[in-house]
Every structure is written in C-alpha cells, then in structure tokens.
Design a protein around this nucleic acid. Structure first.
Lengths: 186, 186
DNA sequence: GTCTATAGCTCGATAGAC
DNA sequence: GTCTATCGAGCTATAGAC
C-alpha cells in the first residue's frame, strides 16, 4: 500500500497524484485509502517516514564516518541508478516542497539540515580540519548534497547523458584535494 | 501578464497553479486569460520562452568562453540570491517536469542538453584539453550544472544555510584543479 | 474493513452577450 | 477584448450501509 503510494507520488508529484489512482492501483476504492490514512497529506508523510527507515542517511548508530561516509555517498549514487522510483520520489517532492504550504516542506527542511551536518562532519574528519564550523567546509558539504540532487533531475530527463556516480565521485575527490591538499593529491 | 504568470507558477508549480489565481492577480477573469493564451500549458510555454530571452545561457553570439564563462556561472549564482522568483520558477518546474506527461518536459530536456554542451566546451577550453568528448570533462560539466540546481532547492528551503555563489565557486575551482592541475593549483 | 453515495469544492475550457 | 454563465470533469473528504 505504501509502496503503491510511493510510486504514484513519484510518478505524478504530490499535487497531481490523486487518491483515486492510488486506490485503483491498490485494488480498493478512494474511500478505502482514507480509511487507513485520514488525509492525503498524512499519506504523504507516512510515505516519507517509511522511506527514511533503512535508507541513505539512517544507517543506524554505526554509520560510517569521515572518508568512509563520503565513499558511501558515491555508492548510493551508483545504486540509485537502479532505483529510478526512489530517485524520482525525492527529486520531484523535494523541489515541489518549496512551493507555498506544501505538506512536505518541514520534512525536507529538516532532512537537509541533518544531511548537511553529516556531510560537514565527514569532511572535517576526513580532512583532519581543526574547525568543524569553517565556512568553506560547510560550502563544500552543501555542494556535495547539491550535486547529488541536481544530477538526479538531469538523469531522470536523460539517463544516457549523466553518470551520477562518476560525477559525484569526481566532485568529492576534487573538493577533498582542495580542502586538504596534503592528504588528497590530484 | 507573463510576469504574473511567472510568479504564480514559481510559487505554486504548474499543476497547482490555477488560471483563476493568475487572472485575479492580473485584474481580469479566467476567461480573459484564455483569450490571450489558448490553454494553460501554452501559457507555461510562453513563460519559459520569455524567460529564455536575456537570461543565463542565452547571452547572444558573444557569449563568454572558457574560464570567463565559468566565472559568469558564479556571477549568476550571486545574482540569483537577489532573484528568488526566478530561482523558484526553475527549481520547481525543472523537477516537476520529470513527472508523467508534463508540458515542460521537452523544454527542460533541451535546456539541459544545451547547458551541458556549453559547460563542457568551457571546461575543455579553460583547461586546454585535447579531447572535447572526454568522459571526465562531461562528468565535471554535469556536476557544475547539478550543483547550481541543487543549491537552489536547499537555498529556497533555508536561505541562511546556503551560500550559493561560494559553493559554486568552490566546486568549479576544485574541478579545474583536478582537470588541469598544471594550470590551476589549489 | 470495504463499499456506495454524495457533499462541496476547484479546475480548464467553451459559448456567447456586450 | 472582457465579461458572465456554464459544461463536464476532477478532486478530497465525509456519511453511512453492509
């Protein structure tokens, strides 16, 4: 049920997806869907929360740190090329969430805040930097997240023109050798 | 009129924006809007075409080349921080366009194809590379476009957490020194 | 739990008066 | 050119039978 809702939101976006279509695909009526989820926006929230378990940034307490975490991001980009549905869900909804009164706005704001902290920490640790709050580290972290997101949109529109993992890897390596040229040479 | 439509599509996305709201803001009725644009999707097309004149990638035949073009991208990121409406329009619509049967899908596919060619050329020239079709150059070009797009979404959700120009500049510099370490040192 | 039925909207588009 | 009126369709959500 949540899987079907996920696919539908991914294919159509939140606003353009209808409970009737989700219900059809799930083999019941629109009223049936609302029996389990009191409203459409609550269904979206449930979809997003479900997706957070067992995914990218929720790896449990033994999440990899430093360089291992950055490598994990490249791995994720590689695996994402085989998970178009998931990529579509986040690409479509994250951008849609910036529109007025979107029900997923708080979710994505918080998600990015958390991701930024993770990546900033990983960079600081991998590079052995003294100050975890250095603006340049923060800029680099934001850029790494941004490049992964932006590549997804290009890839969804034109899969053959984009190598998500290769581009992600190239950016991370380049940033590392800028932030810590002694540790990471070109 | 097109300006009002632009703002509305930017604030609500295409699907969620209504002709009635656009008409209200423009001071006429919904039927009045359809007198000028035969359909909603034609209005969107007109908005996007209008925006292409005098903007980022349409700088006329004397578009800057090589390093100057890459600097221009950073300038654009800097100016974009003062043009939230325009940023919102492209961030929202580009992601929305990957959904099924979206009227702007062809527009954004073509736009990215053109942008990729521009940035790839600029990188090839700036770095003095022999092969304009090198995969790594293409990966770097895609990454530069992606980082600019991805930063916009983060910035719209949390303006204080993101320095679009600084992050863009950092990525471009880092990539340059990876692609051509002899010309661009850290 | 799942259904039918329906209330109560909003939407895009068209027809036609002025 | 701009309006009113309206069609036909879609939507979310609720009420209530079974």
């Amino acid at each position: 049920m949540l899987n079907i809702a996920t696919d539908t939101f991914a294919a159509r976006g939140y606003n353009n997806a209808s409970l009737a279509e989700i219900a059809d695909r799930a083999g019941l009526t629109q009223a049936g869907v609302l029996h389990y989820f009191r409203s459409k926006s609550l269904l979206l929230t449930s979809v997003l929360e479900r997706r957070d378990q067992g995914d990218i940034e929720q790896l449990g307490p033994e999440r990899p740190r430093g360089l291992a975490f950055l490598r994990h991001l490249v791995d994720t980009a590689l695996r994402n090329a085989e998970r178009e549905g998931l990529v579509r869900l986040y690409a479509v909804l994250s951008a849609e969430s910036v529109t007025e009164d979107h029900p997923a706005q708080a979710y994505f704001r918080d998600r990015y805040t958390g991701l930024r902290a993770f990546v900033t920490d990983a960079l600081t640790e991998a590079c052995g930097l003294p100050d975890p709050d250095a603006p340049r580290t923060r800029d680099a972290a934001n850029a790494i997240i941004a490049v992964m997101d932006g590549l997804q949109v290009q890839w969804l529109l034109d899969p053959d023109a984009v190598a998500m993992a290769a581009s992600t890897d190239l950016v991370i390596r380049s940033l590392l050798s800028t932030l810590a040229p002694d540790r990471f040479s070109n």
